Computed example of a mutant assay.
Amino acid sequence: MSGMRSYGDPCGVARGLDVIGERWALLVVRDLLLGPKRFNDLHAGLSGVSPNVLTQRLRDLTEHGVVQRRDLPPPTRVRLYELTDRGRALEPLVLHLGRWGSQTATAPDGLLGIDSILLSIKAGFDPTRAAYLHGIYELHIDADTYFIEVTDDSLHISRDSAPTPPHATLTTDLDTLRAICDHQITPAAAVDSGSLHLGGDEHAKQRLTDLLLASFMPAPQPADMP
């Protein structure tokens, strides 16, 4: 098991933790849920992990059939890491853990990465609003492109271009997106400043901004004591 420790317990929970319970393992899965990544991109998105530890986690997850490597043909010569079907089956667990963890009283001082932001949007998606939010949207965040598709009852996000012309597009940098999600600036103010650009008809642009903000509503304040 490449040095991984085992609980030695036949329970499914323990056996699952034997695979993804090591430090950083589940965060690697999280950062691959939206699509393949190169090693350097994974390392850049996981603040605090050393290259050696990340290499070991990728090796462990590959041996257990959670992650697979894919080499792009020449002239690209790039090695990508992506989830297998077994790895993608962890998505409900990751989203639920994210919802659960976000309710803790305090948060570390670190910054949310783009994968965490988009997965938070997916975790907070309300299927009852799908009819209103229905559409295909494309996000350009720094040098990366993502597409979001809202169907009748679900939401899909992928690190890729939209397969068909999107109804609305959003172009910005990660710092601006963080500020919008933290309610430090409104989308309208970001547009006025030139740090955010929206394309598409007005109704589609409104649906897209509503979708992005829905999962980052300010936490309700406790009622005043009498």
Rank of each mutant, 00 (worst) to 15 (best):
G98I: 03
Y137H: 09
L139K: 06
L133Q: 01
L58F: 05
G101A: 13
M225A: 12
R69D: 12
T128L: 02
V28F: 05
P75F: 10
I141S: 03
D60S: 14
L26F: 04
L208T: 13
I185L: 07
L97A: 15
L80G: 05
V94N: 03
D175V: 08
D109F: 01
L112C: 05
D144L: 11
G48S: 00
F147Y: 14
A44G: 13
E91A: 14
G124I: 15
D115E: 08
D85I: 04
G194K: 03
L95V: 09
E202D: 12
P226S: 00
K37H: 15
P51A: 01
Y7G: 09
L196Y: 02
P75H: 03
R79C: 09
V19W: 10
L27N: 07
T164A: 11
L80E: 06
E63M: 10
V53M: 11
V29P: 00
W24H: 01
A223C: 04
Q184M: 10
H134D: 08
H203N: 10
P51F: 02
V67C: 03
V53R: 05
L17N: 09
D210W: 05
P218R: 07
R59P: 11
L33F: 09
W100F: 14
T151M: 03
H96I: 10
I136N: 07
G194S: 09
P220H: 02
D201I: 05
F216N: 11
A131N: 05
D224M: 12
C11M: 15
R5A: 13
R59V: 07
V13M: 13
T55P: 02
C181W: 00
L61G: 10
Y132K: 08
L83G: 02
E91K: 15
L170I: 09
T106C: 10
G35M: 10
A107K: 13
I185K: 08
K205F: 12
S195T: 12
P36I: 08
A204K: 07
V13K: 12
P74E: 02
S193Q: 06
S102T: 11
S193H: 06
D160A: 15
R15T: 07
D173F: 01
C11T: 14
R86M: 05
R30S: 06
T176K: 00
Y7I: 02
L27Y: 00
E149T: 04
L80C: 13
T84S: 01
D224L: 14
G200V: 04
H167G: 15
A189Q: 13
S154C: 04
T104F: 11
G45F: 09
G110M: 09
G48L: 04
R77Q: 06
